[in-house]
Simulated assay, not measured.
Amino acid sequence: MDLLTPPPDLYGRPRADRFLRGLTAIQDRYVQALGGPLLRRSPRRPLSRPTPPLRLVVAARRELAADVIELSLTGPSGGQLPPWQPGAHLRLVLPSGRERHYSLSGDPADRRSYRIAVRKLPEGGGGSVEIHDTLHPGARLTARSPRNGFAFCAEPTVLLLAGGIGVTPLLPMAREAQRHGLDWRLVHVGRSADTLPYADELRALDPHRVVLRTDDEHGGVPTGAELLAHAPRGAAVYCCGPAPMLAAVQRALDESPACALHFERFGAAPITDGKPFAVRLGTDGPILEVPADRSALDVLREARPDLPYSCHQGFCGTCEVRLRSGTPDHRDRRLTAEQRAAGALLPCVSRAAEGETLVLDV
């Protein structure tokens, strides 16, 4: 029997009763509205709807450390903001149109404000300089709802390793670990004491679980083994910091007491297996050579300085361009198979085979 066709009567009688006639009519209208048979799509998967951008106001600004400011962001009416979990980031659209991601450093229990910390990088892409120079109390901007690519799993034993401004996603994790009575440690490293944001806030959580370690007092940058020596046996490690710090921790992990590593990078991972290829700007545009140790995005921005970008890691989608021809090696963590087939490409991480030329609409 067709599963979509009900029996003529609940009790097997040859004449359909009134209840089932009504039920069948409702089902037929429902199927017609869906445009096809029932159960074509999973009932657990709701229809996707565009999410409107968040409207935010800078409610407060304060100096945290050398070249680091904190912004408190609220809704224009002071109402509740979308929820988030430790490790989440906020994608801000700055007044210039630049888009940048910043980890949320506040308390997820506070639904009326978001808190971010930004270190000024004059040699960077201009986002941090714009924030430092132009965003003061009363400034308005838009954002995407918080997303989390660095989720805290709240394992029973945890070591948090922060490098400089990398403490921002780890501070909410430490707060969560303290709240749930986990066995946690946090090591915060930096060049000097004045470069470490949130030092006082960390100590206030539990001074016996927090280690502040500066290069000027210890004769240089710590090794991965030195950092992981703080891990209790079987600890899960969460690490956020510059690429050399993360690489050192990764190399030392197998010989350490820790059993797992979660991490978030400041920027793109080093290119270790790249091959030289080329990109062409349109069908008649110039051909740009992409060396084995550079990204296509970096090369493209030399020719198109206004090309938008943000994460450098293939998860935000800000730098998306259209592929006209060529065979890319997609290395992003965002695009679906359908989007790739339609020509979407993220040049911050995607590459091509040696000698290949990708023709792009830029």
Rank of each mutant, 00 (worst) to 15 (best):
Q85G: 01
R98F: 01
L64H: 10
E70D: 00
D67V: 13
E155D: 15
G164T: 08
R55A: 14
R55K: 10
A88G: 06
P53Q: 05
V93H: 03
R147I: 08
I116C: 00
L54K: 00
P52Y: 01
S48R: 13
T134M: 05
L141H: 04
A65D: 07
P82K: 12
S113E: 14
W84N: 09
G78N: 08
G87V: 09
R111Y: 01
P108G: 07
A60K: 07
P82E: 04
S103V: 11
V118R: 10
A66K: 08
L71K: 00
A59R: 12
A162H: 10
A151S: 01
L73W: 07
G75A: 15
S48D: 12
Y114R: 11
A151W: 01
A154V: 10
T157E: 12
A59S: 11
S77P: 00
A109F: 05
L54N: 08
P146I: 08
P86R: 03
D67S: 15
W84L: 11
G87R: 02
L159T: 13
T134P: 02
R112P: 02
S77L: 04
D67I: 11
V68G: 05
L135I: 08
L73F: 14
S113K: 02
R115M: 05
I116G: 07
L90D: 13
P53V: 09
E99W: 00
S145Q: 15
P146F: 11
W84H: 11
A66E: 15
P82D: 08
L54F: 01
Y114M: 09
R112T: 15
G163I: 10
P156D: 14
L54H: 01
E70S: 12
R55G: 04
L81G: 10
P50E: 14
T157S: 15
E155S: 12
R111P: 01
D107R: 07
R111N: 04
D107V: 08
G124C: 07
G97Y: 04
P53K: 10
G106A: 12
P83F: 03
F150P: 00
L121K: 06
P156T: 10
L141C: 12
R140T: 15
R140F: 03
L56K: 08
Y114H: 04
G127Y: 02
P53W: 06
E155Q: 15
R98L: 07
Q85C: 12
G125M: 01
R144A: 13
V118P: 09
R49E: 11
P146N: 14
A109W: 02
V129T: 14
G125E: 03
G127M: 00
V57Q: 02
V167T: 09
L81I: 10
